[in-house]
Amino acid sequence: MPAPKNTFKAAIAAKRQQIGCWLALGESAGAELMATTGFDWLLIDGEHGPNDMRSIRDQLVAIAGSDSHPIVRLPIGETRLVKQALDLGAQTVLVPMVDTAEQARELVRACRYAPHGIRGMGGTGARVTGFGSYDGYVQNANDEICLLVQAESRAALDNLDDILAVEGVDGVFIGPADLSADMGFPGKADAPEVVAAIADAITRINASDKASGILTLSEQGAQTYIDMNVTFVAVGVDTLMLANTARAVSAKTKAMIKP
């Protein structure tokens, strides 16, 4: 059996817009719940969420079989972490803080088997091969891995055209929060200078053969980025959705009590 078709990779390669959501709870029960909500993709956050490789694995298992494609965001772009995530069964990885084409090329190599990369062949007994039941996995695995890199600094934007030229990078995700801080506007991703930089980056990404991605926490932001033809847009974070809904219900119900 070959490596499964990566439907998310195929969709973004065709520039078909995909709507997703962040998973920051770090719990398989939450991931299983979110996999029933209709999002095209769900991102398991290993950078800011309370995750390790075991909890990432558990969430991959929870999402498997649903219509939502799991993406694993690693805490950092280290080769060993890329290898582990892939052997756990992740087909799509998002790597934060990629500032140069050299970094991007090293990540591509980490995602690929020799002779095109340095990914180890030890996945025979791992989840990615059905614990040895997918005897044809390695034949097409390189083709089905989707590598997304995050551009979230002035250096990344300065080097964006070079990053976009790296074969094997499938998409570039703009990180508004970190970008705004690096530009001198921490917590102000809506500063005109930041908005202009993001718009320029999206235009350049869309003009390439790569997919563009971004996260927004507002309906207005979602509409803006969809209208800008951003390929994959995250429109919420599970922890914030839970917290904001709970706060609203609590406040509304308490207001019913007569003084």
Rank of each mutant, 00 (worst) to 15 (best):
S212R: 10
A156R: 00
R16V: 11
I214F: 10
T224G: 02
A110K: 10
G171V: 12
G236I: 04
D182F: 07
G123K: 04
L217S: 08
I163G: 05
L81I: 13
D209S: 06
E102N: 09
D58I: 02
R112P: 05
N140H: 11
S153V: 00
G89Q: 09
D52Q: 13
A189N: 03
D161R: 14
Q59N: 10
A104R: 08
W41F: 15
L147K: 07
S153G: 02
W22L: 13
T203G: 14
A24K: 00
E152Y: 08
Y137V: 03
E102F: 01
A141D: 12
K5N: 11
E27C: 05
T239C: 04
E193V: 13
D135A: 10
R204Y: 07
P75A: 00
V195T: 14
W41R: 00
V82H: 01
P75I: 01
G26A: 14
P96Q: 11
G236Y: 03
P2Q: 12
N229Q: 05
E47H: 10
T79Y: 05
A177S: 14
K188Q: 15
L215P: 03
I174P: 01
D200V: 04
A110C: 11
G171R: 05
I76M: 12
A181H: 08
G117Q: 08
R127Q: 09
D135Y: 05
F8D: 15
F232E: 02
A110V: 12
G65E: 01
A101D: 08
H48R: 04
A62E: 14
V235N: 00
L157H: 02
P50L: 08
G213W: 01
L157E: 05
A14D: 09
L242I: 15
